[in-house]
Computed example of a mutant assay.
Amino acid sequence: MTRTLILPGFMGSGTDHWQQHWLSDYPGSRLVEQDNWDRPHLDAWLVRLESALEKHGDVILVAHSLGCLLAAHLAGRASAERIRGALLVAPCHLDRTDQIHPDAIRFGSMPEKRLPFPSLVIASLNDPYMPFEQCRHYASVWGSDLIDLGYAGHINVASGFGRWVHGYRLASLFQRDGSDGMPGTVSRIGSHRPFRGIVRDRRLLS
């Protein structure tokens, strides 16, 4: 059975965040809990994630913000073999994040390796944590497809994202058998190029 692991970013995902709704709507999904959400440290966060991967076997990652960088740092690690796909929503850039939250994050440098698993980056044109052109660059570096949500901020509660039903549908692209309570589908992401570049679909905003 393929599990879904939820990877929040800096300060976690609070009440009404779409990741919290995901956990409620799909009881088979699991939150990767961190000891300290307010002082993220890459090595400590990786230990927690890899422990969850060892426990749950084959998984789909659903990450937001700094959680996307955590997922991307699995490139080159043996534990990445357990990942069937990753939905990377509003990845942040470490330089921009440090400007907004000085000295709070110890996450090394931006991950620059191609991901060994299928991945889909969901980006915004006015994300304060990552300019769109930078996001497009990293999606290319990681070998990810990219969906442009338009002017959607950081794709969080502040920008109007509570329960995000379209996110479930995007994650279902990685599922082949309908496990974890998601609709079954034949994955189109196995080649890493299901969308053939940037897709602009405003219907994904809600």
Rank of each mutant, 00 (worst) to 15 (best):
G57T: 14
L23P: 04
A44E: 15
L31V: 01
R82Y: 01
L49C: 08
R30D: 03
G85H: 01
L69C: 07
D58K: 11
C92Y: 00
L31W: 07
W22P: 00
S29M: 11
L70K: 06
R77S: 04
V59W: 11
H64C: 03
I60G: 10
E50N: 12
A72R: 08
A86V: 13
G85N: 10
E54K: 13
C92P: 01
R77Y: 05
A78P: 01
L61H: 08
V59R: 08
G76E: 15
L70C: 09
L23M: 12
L66I: 05
L88K: 11
L42A: 01
L88D: 04
Q34E: 10
P27E: 05
S29R: 12
A44C: 06
D35L: 09
L74P: 03
A44F: 04
R39G: 02
H64N: 09
I60K: 02
L66Y: 06
L87K: 01
L87P: 08
Q34Y: 11
L31A: 05
E81W: 03
L88T: 06
L31C: 09
G28D: 15
A78S: 11
L23S: 03
H56R: 05
V62H: 08
G67S: 05
Q34L: 14
S79R: 14
Q34M: 08
H93S: 11
L87M: 07
C92Q: 12
W45S: 02
Q34R: 10
L61V: 05
V62G: 03
S24D: 14
R39C: 09
H93N: 11
A75W: 06
D35V: 06
A52H: 15
G67C: 10
S24C: 08
W45H: 06
A72D: 02
L87F: 11
A90K: 10
L31M: 08
H56P: 06
L53V: 13
V32F: 01
D43H: 13
A52C: 15
P91H: 10
L46T: 07
E33M: 04
Q34P: 10
L31F: 04
D43W: 01
C68T: 12
L31T: 03
V32D: 01
V47N: 07
V32M: 04
A71R: 11
S79A: 15
E54R: 14
